[in-house]
């Protein structure tokens, strides 16, 4: 594992910890898109089916279990927790995420590495992850004001994607057989979606001001 990959996994982990911290400390999920969280839960559940068949490393197994467990816990909290669910901004979270699921599944049936059940689900999870942040970004845009922890959550998620791109560049030059087109192209698309958010995040950081997204 190279340093970029590790940095990517760690920023991904931090983003989830920041989100859990926000929900736990404020007993509120305001500003968080339940739809994005449900999509992530689906992404992890479909991608990590290999937990049942392949062993790569302890690190790999633990991280996968953490991602599945935390995403399910967050969805559970936002839907079922007595206090937390009341702060969910349902009227701002109107993105039609079923459309994303249908479109990415259709793409996975057309473009895959191998025509097997597992590989098609793997491709689906990669495509779905690329666009899963959209309901969250739309929600931030709508509410305009972004609270500190929600802003940091999205920032770390974006950083995770950026580090993965550096990781692929590194692997491309250091490993003879590293060509994972589906993951790399989807990863580029996914990172590009954060560009606008990053722009405003850095401006607010530079000016030491509260993060605000233009309407």
């Amino acid at each position: 594992m190279n340093i970029f990959r590790l940095a990517g996994d760690m920023t991904h982990l931090i983003s989830i910890l920041v989100l859990l911290l926000k929900i736990y400390a404020t007993k509120s999920c305001s500003g968080i898109s339940l739809k994005t969280q449900e999509l992530y839960a689906l992404v992890f559940l479909t991608r990590y089916l290999d937990l049942l068949t392949d062993f790569i490393s302890i690190y790999n197994t633990v991280m996968k279990l953490v991602f599945i467990g935390s995403s399910l816990a967050i969805v559970w909290c936002m839907r079922r927790h007595r206090v937390v669910r009341r702060s969910y901004d349902k009227e701002l979270d109107t993105f039609r995420h079923y459309f994303l699921i249908a479109a990415t599944f259709a793409l996975a049936v057309l473009v895959y590495e191998k025509f097997t059940f597992r590989e098609i689900l793997w491709a689906f999870s990669i495509y779905l992850e690329a666009v899963a942040i959209l309901p969250q970004l739309v929600m931030l845009q709508r509410s305009g004001n972004v609270d500190n922890l929600t802003g940091k959550y999205v920032f770390f998620l974006g950083a995770y994607r950026a580090f993965y791109i550096l990781n692929w560049i590194y692997r491309y030059f250091t490993e003879a057989r590293f060509t994972r087109w589906i993951a790399c192209v989807s990863g580029l698309v996914q990172t590009a979606l954060y560009a606008d958010f990053f722009y405003y995040y850095f401006i607010s950081w530079k000016n030491n001001a509260k993060l605000k997204l233009p309407a």
Partner: peptide
């Protein structure tokens, strides 16, 4: 012939 390398990324 083409055995793809293991999917070791998360």
């Amino acid at each position: 012939p083409s055995s793809s390398p293991p999917k070791d990324e998360l």
